[in-house]
Design a protein around this nucleic acid. Structure first.
Lengths: 209, 209
DNA sequence: GTCTATAGGAAGATAGAC
DNA sequence: GTCTATCTTCCTATAGAC
């Protein structure tokens, strides 16, 4: 086999592991199957990673970064808050529909991390980053169209992170992406309704932005 | 060891399995550890269940039923819709705080079921029951204080199921039950705000019920 | 129904040649 | 750095006596 520097092999094995685990699930993915997916022998695996745990650490970090990069890239401020939130949800949801197995994998990895002694911090970091990303996006949106929120940004961010997470899992179990998208639209309206600016809240009550 | 009819032994093993899996996690729970937890030998296990899969089927069904029974029992209609929803969330959340390991286990079992060929229907059934239970509760609440909702009951029910699921997972990862409870209060207000009855929606916009 | 003992397989990790 | 071969451990499941 072609020789390769250590760092590159590690990346190759990490990505092969992500593919294998997304396809077969975490429990069924063995060091052997990962090595096979990467096209190398088992001992190359152990040359690059001291243990399966060490590889999984790399997998969790890589997939979390990758996931956040996708979300951040897709979201830009629009004309109104409602449109911005809606567009953000749509972009996220398109990604879920296009890559269900990858999202499934993130749940499996979260649980692996929570159960594996010494790995809890990875699961925490993963979810803290979700919250932080939503908070960042909320700030961004707020920066353009000065507005006040009825609830603190961190609270709303955590709500959005948890809600999308739950809805994604719900979809992975039940299917029916359209129904889930409908729910996201409903939530988008609710979130837009949290805006405090009285000029934008006519007494009719609804459809403020 | 004391002799015991088959059905009873099965229950005993199922409950021992739930304890062991809540404590150690699904992947680490072996037929041996389950038999030990139940205080019987390994071959008694295989006398009662053809395979580990067969036991897991029993576990999933049992824990789902148990979980729904708890939720249903705790929820009664109150004076206003807001209070009813809030009290329901509080009861649910108290259960999560008191039994985090059990809730964790439900997530693990969902994923096990999704990954195990032929077990997908168990995961689906689990989540369908969650939705159905919320729908039932919404109908109950609606029966007392005639009201109209801005969104169809099934949509709202699925939203609530997904949202509480996501928030629970979020709490299991990040901790800080108080922050999550705050979010639930916020959502309760939002849900109460979905009531259509104009008499209850003064032009001030908020705090309608 | 319950037991002890073991079959049979697959996993993670290592040894040592190249 | 990469290979083949192997060690060690632990699992599910079965056999057969009581």
């Amino acid at each position: 086999m072609a020789r390769m520097p250590l760092a590159q092999r590690r990346r190759q094995l990490t990505e092969a592991a992500i593919r294998a685990m997304a396809r077969d699930g975490v429990p069924r993915t063995t060091t052997r199957s990962i090595a096979a997916e990467a096209g190398v022998s088992l001992s190359v695996f152990h040359y690059c990673f001291d243990s399966k745990q060490a590889l999984l650490e790399s997998v969790i970090e890589t997939i979390t970064e990758h996931y956040l990069a996708v979300v951040k890239e897709e979201i830009r401020p629009r004309a109104t808050l409602l449109e911005t939130v809606r567009a953000g949800f749509r972009a996220y949801w398109d990604h879920v529909r296009a890559h269900p197995a990858e999202h499934m994998l993130t749940y499996e990895l979260t649980q692996y991390a929570l159960r594996e002694p010494g790995f809890e911090h990875l699961a925490r970091r993963q979810h803290e980053l979700y919250c932080a990303t939503y908070a960042e996006l909320l700030e961004q949106v707020g920066a353009g169209t000065e507005f006040g929120l009825r609830v603190p940004v961190p609270v709303l961010a955590r709500y959005l992170a948890a809600m999308t997470d739950g809805l994604t899992l719900n979809f992975l179990v039940l299917g029916d992406a359209a129904a889930a998208a409908e729910i996201l639209d409903m939530v988008a309206e609710q979130v837009a309704g949290l805006v405090h600016d009285e000029r934008l809240l006519p007494s009719s009550g609804r459809r403020p932005l």
